[in-house]
Simulated assay, not measured.
Amino acid sequence: MEVKRLIATSEALAVIVKLKKENGELVFNQSGGCCDGTAPMCYAKSDFHVPSRNIKMGDVGGCEFYIDKDQFEYFRYSQIILDVKEEKAAFGNSFSLEIDLGYQFITKSRIFSDAEYNSLPKDQK
């Protein structure tokens, strides 16, 4: 059984492809609070330094995805699903790259079954 800690919807992957064409390599960071709360933020990799307290959740669409250490503890037993929604106005001051395309990345989650969690590699627990 292969289970991934992080996956993305086809809609989110399509937005990532567009952003990569415009910005090159990307990185995601979900800080756990700040301007945009707990929304995942997408940056040009060259423009973002990953905080040392953040944990790599995995890769999505060829991009590294990091999450705040405290949030990781909350999501330790969950699969994170990166999705996107149309967002024309409410988050117009976001620092995340997708906002200029009229979208906002969001995360959804689901709890792993015991078998799924136990099948994760040790370094992902």
Rank of each mutant, 00 (worst) to 15 (best):
D36P: 01
D36Y: 02
S78I: 00
E11Q: 15
F48R: 01
Q79W: 00
N118H: 09
I99A: 13
E87L: 08
V50S: 11
Q124M: 13
I16K: 10
G92Q: 12
D47G: 10
E98L: 01
L101F: 09
G24M: 03
V17M: 13
A90V: 08
A39F: 06
T107Y: 05
R76C: 14
Y117A: 10
V27C: 10
E11V: 11
D114E: 13
V84R: 04
N54V: 06
L97Y: 01
I99H: 09
E25H: 08
L26Y: 04
S46A: 13
K108E: 15
I111C: 00
F105V: 14
I67Q: 12
F91D: 13
K45N: 13
G62R: 04
F48M: 14
F65W: 08
Q104F: 01
L120M: 09
V27M: 02
C34P: 01
S52F: 00
S119T: 11
F75W: 00
A14Y: 07
T38P: 00
Y43D: 09
A90N: 07
K108W: 07
D114C: 08
G33F: 02
R76N: 14
G24A: 08
R53N: 06
T9P: 11
R53C: 06
V27Q: 01
S78P: 00
M57G: 04
P40G: 12
T38I: 05
F105W: 09
S94L: 05
E22G: 07
A44V: 14
N118G: 11
K69T: 15
L26F: 07
Q79K: 07
E25R: 03
A8Y: 06
T9I: 09
E25I: 14
I106P: 03
T38W: 02
I7N: 13
K88M: 10
A12K: 05
E64G: 09
R53S: 08
K20W: 06
Q124T: 15
L26A: 12
T38M: 05
S31V: 02
F105T: 12
F95E: 14
D59Q: 03
A8M: 07
G32H: 04
Q124V: 12
N23W: 03
K88N: 15
Y77S: 14
F75P: 02
S10L: 05
L13R: 15
E98K: 01
Q124I: 10
M57K: 02
D114H: 01
E64R: 04
F28I: 08
E11S: 15
F112R: 00
K20M: 05
R110N: 13
E64M: 03
Y77A: 14
F75Q: 10
C42S: 12
N29L: 05
S31D: 00
V27L: 03
N23H: 10
G33E: 10
D36H: 04
A44H: 14
S78R: 02
V3Q: 11
F112G: 05
S113Q: 03
G102R: 04
F28S: 12
